[in-house]
Computed example of a mutant assay.
Amino acid sequence: MEREEFTQILAREGFKEVVTVTREPDGFLDAHTHPFEAKALILRGELQIKTGSAEQTYQAGQVFHLFADEPHSETYGPEGVAYLVGRK
C-alpha cells in the first residue's frame, strides 16, 4: 500500500492524529498498551508485534492495527523501522 492511499483510509476511518514513528535497529519495547487505537503503514524496515500468543512480522507496505489498551510487545528489525500511524 502507498502512503497517499493509506492517509485517505485513515481520514475515512476517523483517525485524526497521524504521525511518523522511527525506531532503532534491533530495538524492542516490552509488553505495554496505548490509550488509543492505532493503525499504521510500515514505510521502511521491519516490525514484529506480539499480542497474546500471536506474533506477526510486518514489512514495508504492510499495515498493522491495534485496538486501544491492547497489550503488545514490539521488536524492530536490523534496519530499524519507520511507520506512519493514525491514532484515535
Rank of each mutant, 00 (worst) to 15 (best):
Q56W: 09
E70M: 15
Q62F: 11
L66A: 07
E74Y: 15
G80V: 06
E74C: 06
E24F: 03
L84F: 15
E37P: 07
R3E: 14
L10N: 00
V18W: 00
H32C: 08
E55H: 06
G45A: 08
A31W: 11
H34W: 04
E79C: 08
L29H: 09
L84W: 10
V19Y: 07
T57M: 10
H72T: 03
A82D: 08
G77L: 07
V19Q: 06
L66C: 06
Q56Y: 11
D26H: 07
F15K: 06
L43T: 00
T20M: 11
R12K: 11
E55G: 11
E2D: 14
V63L: 10
L84P: 05
K88V: 12
H32V: 13
K39S: 03
R87L: 14
E37V: 10
K16N: 04
E37Y: 06
L29E: 09
A54E: 15
L41K: 01
T22D: 07
T75N: 03
L84V: 13
T33I: 13
H72V: 04
E4H: 11
K16R: 12
S53E: 14
E5W: 12
D69P: 11
D69S: 12
Y76M: 07
I42T: 04
P25G: 00
D30V: 05
R12C: 08
H32Q: 05
E46A: 11
G52S: 05
A40E: 01
H65N: 14
S53N: 12
V85Y: 00
L66M: 08
D69F: 13
P71E: 09
A54M: 07
L43W: 01
P78T: 08
G61A: 12
A40K: 00
T20Q: 07
I9M: 10
